[in-house]
Design a protein around this nucleic acid. Structure first.
Lengths: 251, 251
DNA sequence: TCGGGCTTTTGATCTGCATCAAAGTCAGCG
DNA sequence: CGCTGACTTTGATGCAGATCAAAAGCCCGA
């Protein structure tokens, strides 16, 4: 399944179906009737950001809610002294912003070129209040995000550098596979620099580089350039991640 | 404001009001009409667990959703080799379980004696589908939890042991204050053992002990026994937490 | 009151990852 | 092309917190 053409209001609540992973990849929401879609159309617009552009800064007014159509954005927190922790990686079909909150608490930055499908927040909230299945859908999305955040807490608090890297690479494989960004046996992409990966995993960029090269040396991965790679030994990769056998949660 | 007597259905969605902290402490939900309360009454029951009792084990069927009335429970993930990461601390008014999910992905254990207000999941979901403000309320709760989880990710990934401990103690102060568990200038309680705290903070129990004693030696805290303490120097505690000036988020 | 089994403290040592430093690689662009 | 600046790799060293070990304190029941 490919990314939706940017011409459907249901972008906001849809997601490619993935039989493997019940947590983060949800079935397409097709419950909106014609009238509801019409309402969404009227408050909708598309915005594009270049790689590196800030999308929202901590404290900004949330005039829009949005969903990622194309590209990858990062969601992160920064401490006063500059330490950064990424708390989410926003890929196609992920949701940005939230109803009933006027400002955002995190920094959102485009990691690659990003296209967003935006809806004006206030009218969107009205829709929320009148159309019950929309708020139920949003509740599902929020609970999925909560599960993903908690899985990431296990990674940050208890995993070794090697396990963190293996988990991250495995996640890239799964998400790109189901999102249709890379066809089978095409090289996969790391949408982040070593520095950004380190901020996601709670490591330094040097450690990320060393661990990635260690996996290469062991024949688990192969790099075609600094951003593109192939997995040679999926089983070894999974074994290194420290996750339970099925590994279904963190994709 | 004291803990509610266990006689009101609105236990599920209510929470003591706290003017200081908009994130985790929500205003009481009083939108249910008499008929809705009646419906909730019929699917409600109270359950009590002794300290140390497991409440739910990973993979268990979720026959109930519940909210904590009294006591403290922990929510955690365990790796195959025994490493544990606590991903949530459930205190009075916190919600357990979720609609539309048949099993739970985490272990829930009573840290102290715990009283839960339980609702049968399936009928509760029916209520969700028919009464829009309940799902909106649950969405708010889920989004608050998500913010808290993401703040905790910053702690786990980037804070030092000292900052972690200071943040944790500060959180105990705030939550016990607003939940009315301890009156002003009464000793505050650590509802967890050193080992449990270490699992919450991604540390070892020895490091927790050392850092807590360091804060004592510096005159920031004072212990009346191993579980009870007073904060002598709130400003120093906050300064040690590494959080932004107002510190409003992690309470 | 004593004793046994917890939890906690304290000390000594080790190590994984951070930090510091410098060289290497690549993409874009004049 | 070759220069420039950003990203990445690699190496050397240091240290926060883990690990290992043992003593001390505390609760509780006999």
């Amino acid at each position: 399944m490919q990314i939706k053409s940017p011409n459907m209001s249901v972008d906001l609540l849809s997601r490619p179906k993935c039989s493997e992973c019940p947590i983060r990849h949800r079935a397409v929401c097709s419950r909106c009737d014609a009238d509801e879609i019409e309402q969404l159309e009227q408050i909708k617009s598309y915005k594009t950001f270049a790689a590196g552009d800030p999308i929202l800064w901590r404290g900004d007014d949330l005039t829009y809610v949005a969903s990622v159509v194309k590209g990858v954005a990062t969601l992160s927190k920064t401490m006063e002294d500059g330490r950064i922790q990424m708390v989410g990686l926003l890929m196609p079909s992920d949701f940005i912003g939230r109803p009933n909150r006027k400002t955002i608490e995190f920094d959102v930055v485009a990691a690659t070129e990003v296209t967003l499908c935006c809806f004006q927040r206030v009218p969107f909230e009205r829709l929320l209040a009148t159309v019950p299945h929309v708020s139920q859908r949003l509740l599902e999305i929020a609970l999925d995000e909560l599960d993903a955040a908690r899985d990431w807490m296990l990674l940050l608090g208890r995993k070794t550098a090697r396990e963190k890297i293996a988990t991250f690479v495995e996640m890239m494989v799964r998400r790109q596979h189901v999102d249709g960004l890379g066809l089978d046996h095409e090289p996969l992409v790391l949408p982040l620099t070593r520095d950004e990966i380190s901020n996601y995993l709670g490591l330094t960029l040097e450690t990320v580089s060393r661990q990635l090269n260690a996996l290469k040396k062991e024949g688990v991965l192969q790099f075609v350039d600094r951003r593109r790679f192939e997995v040679i030994d999926m089983a070894a990769l999974h074994a290194a991640s420290g996750d339970d056998s099925d590994g279904g949660v963190l994709c």
